[in-house]
């Protein structure tokens, strides 16, 4: 008998009597304004949020906050004037020297400051991790209150890879001292478009 058969048959013999899947009831958000909450939590996880009205504002803020950025990469049309586009066939290693990667996220979560990114949009999975800095554009109406709301939206979404990102890469492994920029981006900026 293969290990597969052995494992499965032992489990089948040993598993307890069937217990139903519980309902996840609808919890009212524990805050009033999802955008406000997102801004608050995103700051608390080391992110830098900006509520903006136009894409011109985003470009100005990028110039202001990343004056030394030599290589900005993005497929967002909003900032195509200042960023290099890329294709799915590019070698992920070739992005090692990217200073700033900018991406639009169609779903953010207020309660934990996370934004949802998937490979239908970013194409190169390594990009949000390998870039020195990460910026995300979010339309205000795309901020869900809780993770339950978020998963209700993406329950049937097709993707090969997707991730929730909440703030810059971080570690507190050395004496619980928080350090931003462990292996991934050292900063994460969110531009919340209130248009």
């Amino acid at each position: 008998m293969s290990s597969r058969e052995k494992i499965l048959s032992t489990i089948k013999n040993n598993q307890p009597e069937f217990a139903e899947v519980p309902e996840i009831k609808k919890f009212a958000p524990f805050f009033n304004d999802a955008c406000e909450k997102f801004v608050e939590v995103f700051k608390s996880v080391g992110g830098k949020p900006f509520v903006v009205k136009t894409q011109e504002e985003i470009i100005l803020l990028i110039h202001e906050h990343f004056p030394d950025a030599k290589r900005i990469v993005s497929s967002c049309k909003e900032i195509s004037s200042i960023a290099d586009d890329y294709t799915i066939t590019d070698d992920p290693h070739s992005f090692e020297n990217v200073d700033l990667f900018v991406i639009e996220s169609k779903l953010a979560v207020a309660e934990n400051g996370a934004v949802w990114i998937n490979d239908n949009d970013i194409m190169i999975r390594a990009l949000p991790f390998i870039a020195a800095h990460l910026a995300v554009i979010i339309h205000k109406q795309n901020i869900a209150a809780t993770m339950h709301d978020a998963y209700n939206k993406i329950a049937d979404m097709e993707y090969g890879f997707a991730t929730f990102i909440s703030g810059p890469s971080k570690t507190a492994d050395i004496e619980q001292a928080l350090v931003l920029g462990a292996h991934g981006p050292k900063t994460m900026t969110a531009f919340i478009l209130n248009d």
């Binding site: 939590v41 608390s44 996880v45 799915i88 979560v109 934990n112 090969g160 890879f161 991730t163 890469s169």
Partner: peptide, 15 residues
């Protein structure tokens, strides 16, 4: 923390 910085969902290998 409210959530880990990364919650990555791996479904298919990349090309």
């Amino acid at each position: 923390q409210p959530v880990t910085a990364y919650s990555s969902h791996f479904k298919k290998p990349r090309i």
